[in-house]
Design a protein around this nucleic acid. Structure first.
Length: 579
RNA sequence: CGGCGUGUGGCUCAGUUUGGCAGAGCGCUGCGUUCGGGACGCAGAAGCCGCAGGUUCAAAUCCUGUCACGCCGACCA
């Protein structure tokens, strides 16, 4: 490929709406173009990257027995009505009518389509287990797309669905898939991707893991234990709190605390410890607006995901008005209105004397002892883990909090979809059963953008050789110089003949622009052919990550470059685990 | 859905307060000088100033409405 013919313009200035580096670099490097909110086109350079990622994924999916299929983008609503998700999923599911007025949806995930595809085929136990997967565009009408290709509305996803006759068999396959996923990220040049425990969200099911690429711009918060390796998404992380249960109790008092609406105000006013205060956070159920109050220790935050799972339905932050049963700013667990459902967080358990709202305008209790005042109440885990917190796995105070981008996930779905869509098989005794499912996703474009985010410098991306748009970038510094041009042409043709992927820049432009473009394209190996180098009968070979910078005699150049390329691939392979 | 902000050649932006010829840099086209980190000179092309309505002799600028986009939050893989 000659750079002069590459479609997609590179440019110097950072686009105004790019907040993270990878977004700016991928737009500036001619990788992608904005089309609409959360919608991008891929130029050839990015398409080459995503195609390579797709092939890595294919290979590993095939290696664990997957068979590639293709589901439609447009699905009749009836299919989603079978699973109940036509109603239950929010606005991110695009619903529309065709010319006949019948309802359809744009596929945002394909559990229904997968069950539909195989429910006649898989009526006998002899067909199990099996896995089908596809690489396809999905559309999710995200409330807020952001960060370039990291969070978009239309994207390519690999989604896989496995079917099993027992939970044990699913467990076994899940483990296999877990390893295949590790291999995919290792082969894509990001062995640093880690797995974390996750919340299953709208997909349903129990066991699930997410694959996270750690970067400060990541949207997800991840809880990591430095001691035992426990890792979890904040949403699913168990919070453990040890309170000093030996502290002296105190008499319950109702004290005037004027204009103290926040827990900080109250504690400052009463000169008390935030660690012995009780904070109320109020939500409402989406279904009937009934109040749900979460009480946590003053220095903790509510984990809404855990609270939602506990409540068992969707909730949203509450709007409290004058005539509601709750007194905003003065809500406490003792003498609270019976109209409100409330939950006590584990961080409150065992505190001898609490400061808490008195459910009366302008008053707080002090000396509140939950066991004494409320009797044997139960505590639930509804708070967020904090930096330096207690690891739920090893019990040490060794928790750190990091940010990450979710590049893949695996779920155990159970029989949620096979039951609702009535997919059954007959076992060897002639009895009918619902198969157990797993599902496994990877966002292809998001992975490409994440790798750019994790592997770049101020001048451009530093693509791993396995997914780089081209392996070698030749800069012919003076294309008007006959000998230089001849040497560069020769090297280009020689490498092409050996099957190396080369991008060749023989434009008659100044070196500065040439180098800038090469940086923005980010090919791992760069070769500089110039009159200066040819005076020593050499070309200069460097790597994008600057680890190699070598003058190589022209006659050895092709061989040296091929070797360097192999070395880069070997470096990637050295991180790939075997089964 | 709530808060804040922005819409002016392909890109980055100035001009809007105080109404008076549509601007700069980058990019693009041509010519020339240059040539190891986005160089310079000369000559060009390119704009429904987001859209609609209003005020005015006169609107990018003031008013009303509307749309789009961005950031933060909400929601969500």
């Amino acid at each position: 490929m000659k750079l002069a013919n590459l479609i997609g313009q590179r440019f110097k200035e950072k686009p105004a709406d790019c907040v993270i580096d990878s977004h700016a670099l991928m737009v500036r490097g001619g990788f992608m173009k904005y089309v609409g909110n959360g919608i991008y086109s891929e130029f050839p350079a990015l398409r080459r990257i995503t195609a390579k990622i797709e092939n890595i994924i294919r290979k590993e999916m095939d290696a664990i027995g997957g068979q590639e299929v293709l589901f439609p983008v447009v699905l009749p609503a009836s299919l989603w009505e079978e699973s109940g998700r036509y109603e239950s999923v929010g606005n991110e599911l695009v619903r529309f009518k065709d010319r006949n007025g019948s309802n359809h949806v744009l596929g945002m995930t394909h559990e229904e389509a997968a069950v539909h595809l195989v429910r006649e085929y898989a009526q006998s136990y002899t067909k199990y287990p099996f896995m089908i997967y596809q690489l396809q565009r999905k559309f999710r009408d995200e409330a807020r797309p952001r960060a370039g290709m990291i969070r978009v509305r239309e994207f390519t996803m690999k989604d896989a669905y496995s079917f099993h006759t027992s939970q044990e068999d699913l467990d076994k396959y899940y483990e296999l898939c877990f390893k295949a996923y590790n291999r995919i990220f290792q082969k894509a040049g990001v062995p640093e991707v880690i797995t974390v425990k996750s919340d299953s969200g709208m997909m349903g099911g129990s066991v699930s893991h997410e694959y996270m690429l750690l970067t400060p711009v990541g949207e997800d918060t991840i809880v990591i234990c430095n001691e035992c390796g426990y890792r979890s998404n904040m949403e699913a992380a168990e919070n453990r709190v040890e309170n000093n249960t030996d502290a002296a109790t105190a008499e319950l008092q109702c004290i005037e605390t004027p204009d103290c609406k926040t827990i900080e105000d109250v504690c400052a006013f009463l000169k008390s410890d935030v660690e012995s205060s009780c904070k109320a956070v109020v939500y409402q159920k989406n279904s009937d607006d009934k109040f749900v109050v979460a009480f946590v220790r003053g220095d903790y935050e509510v984990n809404e995901t855990k609270l939602r799972n506990l409540v068992g339905e969707e909730i949203h932050p509450a709007v409290i008005t004058e005539d509601d049963c709750l007194v905003a700013g003065y809500i406490g667990p003792y003498n609270i209105s019976s109209e409100a459902e409330f939950y006590l967080d584990v961080s409150l358990e065992g505190i001898a004397a609490l400061v808490a709202g008195a459910n009366k305008e302008g008053y707080h209790y002090t000396g509140l002892n939950l066991k004494r005042e409320l009797g044997d109440v139960s505590y639930a885990d509804i708070s967020k883990v904090k930096e330096g917190g207690i690891c739920p796995c090893c019990g040490k105070r060794s928790i750190t909090i990091k940010r990450g981008i979710e590049v893949g996930n695996i779920f155990q779905l159970g029989t949620k979809y096979t039951k609702s869509m009535d997919m059954q098989y007959t076992d060897e005794n002639g009895k009918s059963h619902y198969p157990v499912m797993g599902c496994y996703g990877i966002g292809v474009g998001r992975l490409a953008a994440s790798i750019c985010e994790a592997h770049h410098d101020e001048y451009g991306p530093v693509w791993p050789v396995s997914i780089a748009p081209w392996e070698v970038h030749i800069c012919c510094l003076r294309a008007d110089d006959e000998e230089t041009k001849k040497t560069a042409d020769g090297l280009y043709n020689s490498l092409l003949n050996d099957g190396i992927e080369v991008i060749y820049d023989d434009r008659k432009i100044r070196p500065g622009e040439m180098f800038s473009d090469a940086d923005l394209i980010g090919a791992p190996v760069r070769v500089i052919v110039s009159p200066r180098n040819l005076k020593e009968s050499s070309v200069e070979v460097t790597t994008r990550d600057k680890s190699v910078k070598e003058m190589v005699p022209v006659e050895n150049a092709a061989e040296y470059i091929k070797e360097l390329r192999s070395r880069l691939f070997a470096e990637i392979e050295s991180h790939v685990e075997n089964f």
